[in-house]
Structures are given as structure tokens and as C-alpha cells.
Design a binder for these strands. Structure first.
Lengths: 333, 333
DNA sequence: ACGGATAGCGCAACCCGTTGCGGAAAATAG
DNA sequence: CTATTTTCCGCAACGGGTTGCGCTATCCGT
């Protein structure tokens, strides 16, 4: 059974397809009686418009693309949730692609997005991505691209992320005020902008509170396993930190596991603070204080910006948005 | 700058668009020299096919829809990850929709899917959904629909989920063998098939080990808050369970929080076992034993089945798949 | 009754790649 | 050298909704 088209309705009523088309969208050129008849027949036949045809004609797809390294368990699901929510509210749908943290796959995703004729793109870059030249194709066709969360600082690019500098700063400040002296940090891949910003905030806060930055208290890793290994080694050193800052929930989860496995207690043996989306800190016993950032808000903000850029590219002034975070105090370090 | 079409190439080479089209796909009717020239020019101009036009013509979209109540933090991100992986490997892309556990929104999502002309659909039903009549429209157009995880038992429908009965049975068996006598259970909404199946397994195992099923040791809830409230009340009763089974990670996370807040210790005060995707049990101290199910595997299996149903609807025999789970022993109850 | 305004609708092109069919030129056969 | 096949390519329609433009019929005013 083939689907009902506008021409089927037209034939049945002995009018032209254009009349049907206009009648269905209440075009003033069409008389009320005709409109009524068309709508009634459309209803009876169970007609619904073929978006493929419409979008093809209008040269738009009402689709947004979302490329992200991987659907994780903390930040990204919330972000996707926020993106999907806004996206749909505004009449768009969302196609998702995983780049698996591979630059090559990221480029594949881009090709797919282009061939689908997406109207806008949200991207969370892979850790392999060093520049954003491969997104130039979209600019040429006036298709807006917004970088989210894992971004690269490049002028002109639209970016939505949290203020990682302030978040890290706030975390260390909290520890410093509680007289922790030997503050360590566990960070993601050294080369990522997200890591750099958070480490800058980390260092600045240490500086402000006259605590020396100790390189061997800071570890970096690109995978959870690497982080676990490095952190375990850190704990085995003769001089151990008395407090640990973790820059993401993923890292926090790794650190927590090692701490438990080593039979250490929080906060007596070691205090822990993290930038977090705000779930994990509640599962842990004792709960830990964290700097709350919201994947959901980042997602919503980015999606709203994308809609604006898509529909009124020239009206949008603020193309770079950093969301602020806040302290959620759950323990008593 | 508008995008390059097949006609642009045709004009440049003074051939017909059809020749270009055929040349680009190595049609035997076209001479080698022409093919080479076409391909070269296509390359120079940065031509890439307009999928919208192609799909419109072929009356297919190479898009799969995925409707789920909400993107959670445990099972569903992994499932989506698996779906996206297979989907893309097989040449399809994935559009996601959130129904927010509302039947009305679920229907909205269906309308969107239909108007997009998706080639196949994966659905995780809302808790409000009592029947699947509103999916009939897809059947009429030979568009396969697969129900995933949260399904409704209805003959003829394609379903992929875990064997919740066996999973629950295994969990209770584990507790019974360790001589827990007063086993409680925390379940989701009573009316859901997923809940019923797991509770059946729960009861069956109690029965096998001659442990009486106590209604007041079992609680149900539709939201995390509701579950927390009920569970807290359970703990305040004079007769408390000595072990608790939780049917999902979401529920486990709620239960864990209450246990911690009440200052109870696992497993001495109360043992805990859960069906889990396998992350949360590691964050908790002490780690807890769980029945491992895999959102990732469910996603991959469902996506593979969907591809099969889409491409060879008549070849597929097995339209109902239940994945088995296994015990992961982390504690020493 | 006649000129101009307006309401109501149809024609046909358009978006872009695909494909059945037919035709001309070249190659091969006889 | 003619007849037949093969090679290579173009024409035109298709898919389904949209839209600029033009045409006719009715209406109003004078």
C-alpha cells in the first residue's frame, strides 16, 4: 500500500495539486469551501505530508547533526537529553554520530552529515582533533557549526562549554580554605583545551593560596585504565597528597575505585573533590563535595544557539558561551 | 555558494546529467575515458551526492528512528552506543527522540518518524503505553519496528531485551545460597512487563529455596523519589529484610543512597544485589555483586535485527530475542 | 453597462539524482 | 560492402510538495 499524496486528493476533488497544497496550509488564495473539502478528504485518506519531498524542495532537512566521541555515562547523556529537548521543541530532529575519539571517524561523520543535508551541527571534538579545518565545508554552505564541551580555541568558531577555569579554581579554593596542603589533581589528556583550562584554574588557585604546585601530584591520562595506573602509582609514593581534585566524573569514578581498593578513607586518608554533573558524588560513601556543572544546561544552551544561528545567522552576537558552575557541599572535609 | 550538482558537471563536460550519474557509479554503459573525465571534474568541483535527492527518489531515507523515554545514565547510553555503532556500520544513521515517558509524546515521535520517512524504528516504550496499536501505521508501509528493553508482550511484534526472569532468579539464588532469609526487592512500576518478568523470576527463586515471599518486603515505584520514600519506610519497619534485590541500576543508586544515609553497612546490616549494566557496582564501597546485563549488547542485537528486517523482511525467523545475563561476584556476602 | 479591483484557482517549473528506452556511431561479422 | 551486434550516450519522466505568475469569474462602484 503506497502512501497518499497530494495528487491523490487533487484527483479525487478534481482540483489541481497546487490548490490542495495551498488549501492544506490555509493559503488566503483558496476559498473556504475548497479548504474544507480538501482537509476533509485529506483526513479521510489519512494523508500526511512527505517531509522528504518538502525538505528536498526547500533545500533544508530540519535535521541537526550531533557528533560526539562517545556516549558516556555522566556528562554526555545529559547533554544529549538537553539538546534533543530543545531541538525538538524548535521543530528539528537530531541525528547522532559517534566519532570514537578518532579524527578519521570524525571526518566520516562530517561526510555523512553533509550528504544528509543537515541544517546545523553540534560537535564535541575527539582528542585527536588539533584543528577545525575539516569543518570549513559547512561554513561555505552557511551551515552553522557549534563546538560543545570539548572545543578548540579558534577565533570565529561558536562554542558552548562550562567555565572550566573557574570550576577548578573554586574546587581548589575549597580545599585550600580547609587547610589541605598537598593538593593533587587528576586530569585528562594534556593536550585538550578542556584539560588546559581546568589546569590553569587549578594552578591559579594554588597560587592564590600560596600552595606550591607540585608536578608529581598531578597526573594525566587518556584512558580510564591509564588514569587508574598513574593514580595508583601516585598513592604508592612516599609523599602522598592529602587531597585530590578530579576534573570529570569519569576520572572521579576511576579515582574512587582505586581509593576503595587501597582501603583508604575519604576524607581522612585523602579528601576528594571533583567537577561533576552531580550524580556520582551521591553514590559514594561518604558523599563528596563537587563543583556542579550541567550537561543538560550545556546541551540546551548549545541547541538554542544553534537554532538561532540557523534561523537568523546575522542576529546572533554571542557565539561563545561559558556556563558557570557552583559548589555543592556534601561532605565536611 | 550553492552546492555542486550533477548538472554542473554535465554542463562543464558537455555531456548529459544521466551520463554523469552513471559514470560516477561505474555503470558499464559509460566509456572509460568519459568516466575518468567525470570523476576528475567531480573531484575538482568538490561534488558530493545530495542524499536527500537520492533518498527521495528511492523512497527511502537510510535513517532509523529511536524512541526512548529518556536518555538515562546506565542502561540506555550503552544501548544507544551499540545501536549507533551497528547502524552506522550498516550504512544507516540514527535519529533519536525522547518520549519523556509520556504516551502522547510517544505518538508525537511516531508522527515525526513517519514524516521523515525512516526506514526502521527502535522503540523503548513509555510506562504509560498499554498497547502498541499506534505503531500499526508502520506495519502498513512495511517499515519494521523493534521494541527494545521496555516492551509489551504482543504476538508478532519484534522484541529485543534481556531475560529478566533468569536475571532475577540468578540474583535471588545467589542470596539464598548464602543463607539470607529475609529477601526484599525493589522494583519499578508494577504494570510494566519488564517489572513483571523480573518479579516472576524473583518469586520463583524464593519458591525454589523455600523462602516465603513477603509482600511487605517488596516495594514498587515509578520515580526515584517514590522508590526512596518507600525504601526508607521499609528500613524503618520493625522487621527488616537482610538482603535487597534491585531490578535496575537506577533503583540501585536510590537504594544505595538511602542505605548510606541511614548509616547502614553492606553487607552486614543489609546485603544488596542488583541487575546492573556493570558500572555502578564498582563505585560503591564495598563493591556489590550484580547480574550483568549489557545495554551495549542489547543495542547491537536490536540494530542488527532491524537491519535484517529492513533489508530482507522475509528471511528473518527469530523476531524475539532475549539475551542472557550472568553473575559478577564482587563481594563476599 | 462598462472599467477596474479582487478573489480563487491552475499551469508549469523547480529541487536533483535515477533509470528505462531509444538512437546513433563504431566495431564486428558474414 | 552490407548486415548485425555492440558500445556509448542522451532524452525524458519520475518522486511529491511548493510557488511565481497568469488567467478567469465575480463583485463593486459609477
Amino acid at each position: 500500500m503506497s502512501r497518499v499524496t497530494i495528487r491523490d486528493i487533487a484527483k479525487l476533488l478534481e482540483v489541481s495539486p497546487s490548490t490542495v497544497s495551498r488549501a492544506l496550509k490555509d493559503h488566503p488564495d483558496i476559498g473556504q469551501t475548497t479548504k474544507d473539502k480538501v482537509k476533509q478528504v485529506a483526513d479521510e485518506l489519512g494523508y500526511f505530508p512527505n517531509n522528504q519531498a518538502v525538505n528536498f524542495r526547500q533545500r533544508k532537512s530540519k535535521l541537526f547533526g550531533l557528533i560526539l566521541p562517545e556516549l558516556g555515562r555522566f556528562f554526555s547523556p545529559d547533554m544529549v537529553r538537553g539538546i534533543e529537548e530543545i531541538t525538538r521543541k524548535k521543530g528539528y530532529s537530531l541525528v547522532i554520530f559517534q566519532s570514537n575519539d578518532s579524527l578519521e571517524k570524525e571526518k566520516e561523520c562530517i561526510t555523512l552529515c553533509r550528504s544528509f543535508g543537515i541544517d546545523g551541527l553540534l560537535v564535541c571534538l575527539t582528542r585527536e582533533t588539533k584543528n577545525i579545518d575539516h569543518f570549513q565545508g559547512f561554513a561555505k554552505n552557511d551551515i552553522p557549526v557549534i563546538f560543545v564541551d570539548k572545543v578548540i580555541r579558534e577565533k570565529g568558531s561558536a562554542r558552548v562549554l562550562i567555565n572550566g577555569y573557574n570550576a577548578a579554581f573554586t574546587a581548589i579554593q575549597y580545599l585550600a580554605k580547609r587547610n589541605y596542603q598537598k593538593i593533587g589533581g587528576v586530569f585528562a589528556n594534556k593536550n585538550l583545551t578542556i584539560t588546559k583550562r581546568r589546569k590553569e584554574g587549578f594552578k591559579a588557585a594554588l597560587d592564590k593560596y600560596e600552595l606550591s604546585y607540585k608536578e608529581h601530584f598531578c597526573i594525566h591520562g587518556s584512558s580510564i585504565q591509564e588514569i587508574k595506573d598513574h593514580f595508583l602509582r601516585l598513592l604508592k609514593q612516599t609523599e602522598k597528597p592529602d587531597a585530590i581534585f578530579t576534573m570529570t566524573d569519569e576520572i572521579l569514578s576511576a579515582v574512587i575505585q582505586i581509593i576503595h581498593e587501597e582501603g583508604l578513607f575519604i576524607p581522612n586518608d585523602i579528601a576528594v573533590i571533583s567537577i561533576s554533573n552531580g550524580y556520582l558524588p551521591y553514590y559514594i560513601n561518604p558523599k563528596i563535595t563537587f563543583i556542579k556543572h550541567s550537561g543538560y544546561e550545556v546541551g540546551k544552551t548549545a541547541a538554542n544557539l544553534l537554532v538561532d544561528l540557523t534561523e537568523n545567522p546575522n542576529m546572533v552576537l554571542q557565539r561563545h558561551i561559558e556556563l558557570e558552575t557552583y559548589l555543592v557541599e556534601l561532605d565536611s572535609c
